[in-house]
């Protein structure tokens, strides 16, 4: 605990999004056991940990897809509550889920705008959920988002997602999170299905987000990618913090060891 506090302390920029003491239980599984996490604007915070460490669960809690059993949320050090996906997106938190969360039966444009569809003007006499969709605007926005990501293999934004490749789907999920104007963008293993060239594009997107003063959370198992884009690296193990380091203060070997054995073990081994 003190280890974590200390390493986040003096050198860290002031956080934009900060959560503390997050607990999440699934029945008997205690997936998050008092996790602290933070990310500042203009930085990329990498989140690493072994399979089942709780990375995705933490991201889902931050995105409002799961509600935390306990824990506090702060945006710019002001307490907020995130109990639903709406709360999170209202706070500017956007996410690329590990499983992408796309609807295969809908087309690319519909997926990109899902839950935040543009509406034709002039129907304010109807309740919002019954106003006509502006599907042309939807296509325009989708095309822009796709173009910005430079997904060249996607022929049409009217193609059904069910017919796309894994990489194309991942690109769409990324475009959805990046296209919505949020201040926090969290990417949960966004390059898992991507080739070398597309992975490079995603890393460039991540850097661009940082350069445009976004707070970026990047989850990956690829140490090389992490050491390329991350400013800080937060290690989770068994649903608890191990440590958070500045990238320059740590080596990939240390990270891997912290992920798999934690710090105490390492200390024991050294002794």
């Amino acid at each position: 605990m003190s280890q974590t506090k200390q390493s986040m302390g003096p050198t860290a920029p002031s956080p934009h999004l900060r959560v503390s003491d997050i607990h999440k239980r699934f029945g008997g599984v205690h997936a998050l056991k008092g996790v602290n996490f933070e990310v500042a604007r203009g930085e990329v915070m990498a989140l690493v940990g072994d399979n089942g460490a709780g990375k995705s669960t933490l991201m889902k809690v931050l995105a409002g897809a799961h509600t935390a059993d306990e824990g506090q949320f702060f945006i710019d050090e002001e307490a907020v509550s995130v109990n639903s996906p709406h709360d999170a997106s209202d706070l500017g938190i956007q996410i690329v889920y590990q499983d992408l969360a796309l609807c295969e039966n809908l087309d690319v444009a519909a997926n990109l705008c899902l839950g935040a569809e543009p509406i034709k003007p002039g129907f304010s006499f109807l309740p919002r959920f019954l106003r006509p969709l502006d599907d042309l605007e939807m296509e325009v926005r989708a095309q822009e988002a796709i173009d910005r990501l430079q997904v060249k293999t996607l022929k049409s934004v009217r193609a059904k997602v069910g017919g796309l490749s894994g990489g194309q789907r991942q690109a769409i999920a990324i475009a959805r999170a990046v296209g919505a104007d949020g201040s926090v963008v969290m990417l949960d293993e966004p390059t898992a299905a991507l080739g070398v060239a597309q992975t490079r594009q995603v890393l460039d997107v991540v850097k661009r987000l940082r350069d445009t003063n976004h707070a970026v959370v990047y989850i990956s198992h690829n140490m090389r990618d992490i050491f390329e884009v991350a400013d800080r690296i937060c290690v989770l193990r068994h649903g608890a913090n191990v440590a958070t380091w500045n990238k320059n203060d740590v080596t990939p070997d240390q990270i891997v060891s912290a992920m798999t054995r934690g710090l105490d073990k390492e200390a024991q081994n050294a002794a």
């Binding site: 996906p85 796309l102 839950g115 935040a116």
Partner: peptide
């Protein structure tokens, strides 16, 4: 309706 039919979990996560 279509998104719930296609993938209820996705629909839930976008706030539907």
């Amino acid at each position: 309706i279509f998104s719930v039919g296609g993938n209820p979990e996705s629909a839930r996560r976008v706030g539907i």
